[in-house]
Every structure is written in C-alpha cells, then in structure tokens.
C-alpha cells in the first residue's frame, strides 16, 4: 500500500568521475527524485545512462559529488561511514544483476550472511533464512552452492538475502538482466508480491519493459538525467 510520505528524497544529486585523461564524466547529473513509501518505481534506460550509479547512491554504497539523499528520514550527508553501514544493513536490500552470491557459501549461508552483522542468534538466523528460501521456493536447494543452482534460482537466493533484514527499501539493479524473459517475469512478480506484503518501497532499474505491468511509476534515465517521458531518440525495448 502506497502512502503519501516520501521514503526516498533525492535533490540535485550529482556523481562525477574523473577519467584517466583528466576529463570528468557526470554519471548522475542534478537528479531530483521522490519515491513514496510502498511505491514500486522503475527506472528504464540504456547501459551507461547512470541507473546503477543512482541506485548505489540511494543505497549508500557510493557517495555523491554533490546533492542530497534522504532515506526513511535519514540524510546521508549527515551520516558517518558507520551509520551508512547501518543504513545498508537495516534499511536497504540490494539485488544485483550478477546475483553477487558468495560462491563458497550455500544458498542458506548466503541468505544468513545478511543477518550475521545483526545481534540475531544463530538459530533464529537459520530459521529466518530457511523461511525466506521457502518463500522463494528453494527449500530443497538450501544446501546447494551457487554454482549448483540455475540463474533463476541464484537470483531468487539473492532476493531472499535482500529481504532477510526486512528492509524499508528494496533496490533492484537489473534483476532480470541475466535471466530469460519467463524467469525474469517470475522474479519481478516475486519481488512485487513480497514487497507488497511487507510494505516495502522498491526502486528497480532495468531494461525489461514488461516491468511496466507491475510497477507504479516508470522514469527514464539518459546521460545521468531522469525524465518522466521517454527522451527523444531513446529506444526502449
């Protein structure tokens, strides 16, 4: 259920990188964005448009060159590194395109890894991780290594891990990028259902247009800027 309160507020957000030749690239260029609590927002855009950089900034993985980010009332510029770790641990759940599972951990251990930094007892951690894998339909695969899982199964483990700490915000970075259309749809539906049940805010960046079926709002990104309409000359597949 969406509320009127903003879960995410981004103002004049800019992230620049210096190139080896001494030039400057604006990966994110004066972006303004508000995402309501419980909203499912999708950002579409081609590779190199700055979608992932924006997501990393919103998730506290990267620091902006300028601008302001407020997530669940916390203004990032006023937080120290330790507080940003707490934001990543307690407020944000990430799902990456490349799954980013620990190859030497089983599916269960990968999910549990997100709970290790909390004060949750081991038994409780395992119980919660098992439950999440069950929600993802992976009970039978809990003790398998990522290399023993299909791409879809790996992404579902990554989603279970993202939900482990009951985050307020779920950030999906090309969650279907490595999956076929059918599996991609299933994964997005899964994210949608779980986040809806738990009242989580979701920001997804993707190429997949079928995400329009489940999302509340779609924005477009090109050359570091956000648009409400498809920018001229942009082809969205």
């Amino acid at each position: 259920m969406m509320s009127n309160a903003n879960m995410i507020e981004v103002s004049n957000l800019t992230r620049t990188y210096k190139t080896k030749s001494g030039g400057v690239i604006k990966a994110v260029d004066k972006v303004n964005l508000q995402v309501s609590e419980g909203e499912f927002l999708t950002i579409l855009g081609p590779s190199g448009s700055g979608k992932t950089t924006l997501l990393n900034l919103i998730g506290g993985l990267d620091k902006p060159s300028s601008g302001r980010i407020v997530l669940d009332g916390l203004e990032f510029s006023k937080l120290c590194d330790g507080d940003l770790v707490n934001v990543r641990r307690e407020k944000v759940g990430f799902v990456f395109q490349a799954f980013n599972l620990i190859p030497t951990f089983t599916a269960l251990e990968n999910v549990e890894a997100a709970l290790v930094p909390t004060n949750m007892p081991k038994d409780e951690r395992l119980q919660r991780s098992s439950k999440l894998l069950e929600m993802m339909g992976l009970s039978e695969r809990a003790n398998h290594l990522p290399s023993e899982l299909s791409a879809g199964e790996q992404q579902r483990v990554a989603i279970a891990r993202a939900f482990a700490n009951k985050p307020r915000v779920l950030l999906l970075d090309e969650p279907t990028g490595n999956l076929d259309t059918k599996t991609g749809k299933e994964i997005l539906q899964l994210c949608h259902q779980v986040s809806k049940t738990q009242g989580q805010t979701v920001v997804a960046v993707t190429h997949a247009t079928y995400v329009k079926d489940i999302t509340n709002r779609v924005l477009y990104m090109r050359d570091g800027k956000l648009y409400t309409e498809i920018p001229q000359g942009e082809a969205v597949q």
Binding site: N86, R88, R89, I102, P103, A114, R161
Partner: peptide
C-alpha cells in the same frame, strides 16, 4: 575482493 565488497554491501561493518 568481490566477496568482501558484497558482504559490505549487504551491511557488514569493517569490524565484521
């Protein structure tokens, strides 16, 4: 390095 980056991304502190 990547594994450590992932762990930090999902909320592991430097101490962890």
């Amino acid at each position: 390095t990547k594994e450590i980056g992932i762990l930090k991304a999902i909320g592991w502190s430097n101490k962890n």
